[in-house]
Design a protein around this nucleic acid. Sequence first.
RNA 1: GGCGCUAUCGUCUAACGGUUAGGACGGAGCCCUCUCAAGGCUUAAAUACGGGUUCGAUUCCCGUUAGCGCUACCA
Length: 507
Amino acid sequence: MIASGIHAQRARIRISTIIVQAASLYSNLMLRVRFAPSPTGFLHVGSARTFIFNWLYARRHGGTMILRIDDTDLERNTEQSLQSIFEGLEWLGLDWDEQYRQSERLALHRQMAESILAKGLAYRDFTPAGSADEAETGHSGGAWLSNPGQREISAEESDRRAVAGEPFVLRFRVPRTGEEIRFHDAVYGDQSKSTDDIEDFALLRSNGVPTYHLASCADDADLRISHVVRGQDHLTNTFKHILIFRAAGVEAPQFAHLPLLIAPDGSKLSKRKHGPVVSVTTYRDAGFLPQAFINFLCLLGWSPKDDREKMTREELVQVFSFEGINRSNAVINFTEENPFDAKALWLNAEHIRTMAAAELAEQLMPVVESAGFTITPEKMAQIIPLIQERIHLLRDVLTVGDFFFVTELPPYDSAELIPKKGDAALALRVLEKALETLATAEFTHDGLDAALRAAAENLGIKAGQMFEPIRVAVCGRKTAPPLFGTLEVLGRETCLARIERAISKLK
RNA sequence: GGCGCUAUCGUCUAACGGUUAGGACGGAGCCCUCUCAAGGCUUAAAUACGGGUUCGAUUCCCGUUAGCGCUACCA
């Protein structure tokens, strides 16, 4: 009896844990976040980071990631910009579960506007667009709150003028009671603002198209978005959104605002002012690895708090949380000479160094080929160990390993061939000795090592003095990957030919 | 102008109210070494300012200053 009682209790405990797990699974299914770009430019690095944080949060908790194109600004939207957004996200390898386009949901937005109007919580403003006195007729020298007289127009008159076809803007009737609007932000904490400081913002433009505020809230409500994760530039807009949700009778989502990414001079990143460094595709084209770029972006405004820097996407998913997001804007460093942030470069190099050689080779092949060189996968595989820890960007393969790809070395100054503490005569002696040595040496790293060191000893010079002219003869410059491996990969024939060229240059 | 937000090395950041204020990038130097990298070691470098509260403040409160955001029929 006792035993079965214990069993029953255990069973009960098990059932209760199952219920808890089910409940948490259920709430995760209900966790829905969205990235809502407006297609008025290419995918911006700041937008990319916003996408990433949303994505990490969704993936961390088994929620749903939604891509919503906020294209209510008809004049400024472009198809090209939309493509750029997709292109950027595709490169980053980030996916989403549902996709919507705001312009296809206008009916829903208008419906919400109408319901707010029907409740008397919005009103028609018949002030002609761009009235000169609009800005000045506000309250007591402070902010503009509404156009005079418009709030007071009776419902009957308003309806009549609307039916008569008089154009109007639908404005939210912000309560003038001095109420404090409050919400809790997962990053910035408790926020409050008096309705006295919130103007009667527009819901519908005079052409009937919803504004951002309305469309965004209507869609967030309809799509059952549970967490709105977006740039801090929307922090003060959130009070308006709270008002809209309340007026529409729906529960507001949770909010998490992100500190902004800014330029070294403290201004916000803009294409006009800062050029291509603000576009995600620029990083792709320069040879950043998507995982490294994501890693870099995550470290701007967020920290795992345990001194980790290099993290894979999987690690990021595991440790991401709003608690790690800080509140001050983060500078992304770049100058005219160095367009990429040094830390981004370092992180990219770090990711490249820890990559499997085969994977790196696969990434490098198209870079080399698109530069007009032909190279076999076998050759590339041999080159990898020589360059892997020497490149920061994929495209660096072209400057670090160029001499592997060309048949004819680009011209170089023959003075480069002369070693330190030596003269042209020494260089010549070295190269002639090298020619002789390499003609017969075993063409492996160790074989070359032994043969060339022996040759140096034979000439009575230091190994370094021996290697330097050979390196320049073979690579065309003084800084290059380690010599023996390089010679081995290049092969006897090429090496001998290049050394002969060097000798004739010296003569 | 009004309102809101923010403030730690050059930059990204860490620090239950008690630390010699930590790490990373970048800089400088040394070691390793066939050059370049990589790696190892060392080093310079910060709590914006002024008041409180407290035995004790980078941390909490107030003010100043600075920066940013919003203040559109942009998003």
